[in-house]
């Protein structure tokens, strides 16, 4: 090679300069500050996930657009011919699709957090990375897919001559809360799932039950009134309302739904974060 190698520049001043193991804050706080410090990696990892999804499939982005359409067609046919739930003054396909897209996001992102956490054990045993990076990037990845899937939904709204209102601008906030909720649940399941294979299997079964326990493919009104109050304890019911009402009723979801969704999401996130961060030394010494 040449005799004048480019001298590599000094490292950019970007990371904390002194690490002192005796000055550690509570693991939950520490992980949070580390996550902020590694935010660049979260973004890079999210972009990686998205790139990989599209590189692997021939149809790529088209698939993300097509999948919800196909799903909706099947479900609409099934539920509007076979079951015939009495819907009020909104198109049943939009009702189903708006709820299913949310559940699909929740379902996939929480399961993927478990996968990513287990997969990152290898990486994190070789180089130092805060583990929550991968979970957060997973949620961001699926939020992006969900956002893309809303495009055909808007198309369907136009086709069905569904009134569009400014209320749809609140949808991203509903999605964000759903993302926080999914992160909390995902971290919780991942902490146990990283050790035990059956945790993920059990959770998958629970997810199926959760889908049917949430008014997604049926309206809450068909539930006998005396049971409806129990349904309100389901965080997903409120989250679905936030995203669904602007689409089918052209209005912002009621305040009760917003407050309940916010409360459930923050509680789930706090619990998941706490469990994930306080148990993480256990990850290190996993045999």
């Amino acid at each position: 090679m040449t005799d004048t190698p480019t001298p590599s520049p000094a490292q950019p001043a970007l990371r904390q300069q002194v690490y002192d193991s005796s000055k550690r804050s509570h693991p939950s706080i520490e992980e949070l500050t580390e996550l902020v410090r590694f935010w660049e990696l979260v973004i890079q990892w999210t972009r990686r996930n998205i790139k990989l999804r599209y590189k692997r499939s021939i149809l790529g982005v088209v698939w993300t657009l097509l999948e919800p359409l196909m799903l909706m067609t099947i479900l609409t046919v099934v539920f509007s011919t076979a079951f015939r739930f009495p819907t009020r003054d909104y198109p049943f396909p939009l009702f189903i699709l708006s709820g299913l897209l949310l559940f699909d996001f929740f379902n996939r992102s929480t399961l993927q957090i478990v996968e990513e956490t287990v997969a990152s054990l290898g990486l994190a045993s070789r180089i130092y990375v805060p583990r929550s990076v991968f979970a957060v990037a997973t949620v961001l990845t699926y939020l992006v897919s969900w956002g893309i899937a809303l495009i055909p939904l808007l198309g369907i709204m136009l086709v069905l001559r569904q009134p569009l209102s400014w209320a749809i601008l609140t949808i991203p906030f509903g999605m964000l809360l759903t993302g926080l909720f999914a992160l909390g649940v995902g971290l919780l399941v991942a902490t146990l799932g990283a050790f035990f294979h059956d945790v993920k299997l059990t959770y998958q079964v629970l997810l199926t039950g959760w889908l049917y326990a949430t008014p997604i493919i049926y309206p809450l009104e068909i539930v006998p009134p005396q049971f409806q109050k129990y349904f309100l304890l389901n965080p997903l019911l409120h989250l679905v309302a936030l995203v669904r009402e602007p689409i089918i009723l052209a209005r912002v979801a009621p305040l009760e739904n917003w407050l309940a969704a916010l409360g459930f999401s923050l509680a789930a996130l706090a619990l998941g974060w706490w469990v994930f961060t306080t148990q993480r030394n256990v990850f290190d010494y996993r045999s």
Binding site: Q11, R15, Q17, V18, Y19, D20, S21, S22, A124, S125, R126, I127, Y128, N281, D284
Partner: peptide
């Protein structure tokens, strides 16, 4: 490299660590 936390004792690292391990 901070991958493991010591069970006991104190680690002070001043500056950026580049592990050429993996």
């Amino acid at each position: 490299s901070r991958v493991l936390r010591p069970t006991r004792g104190r680690v002070v690292i001043r500056g950026q660590v580049a592990p050429l391990l993996e």
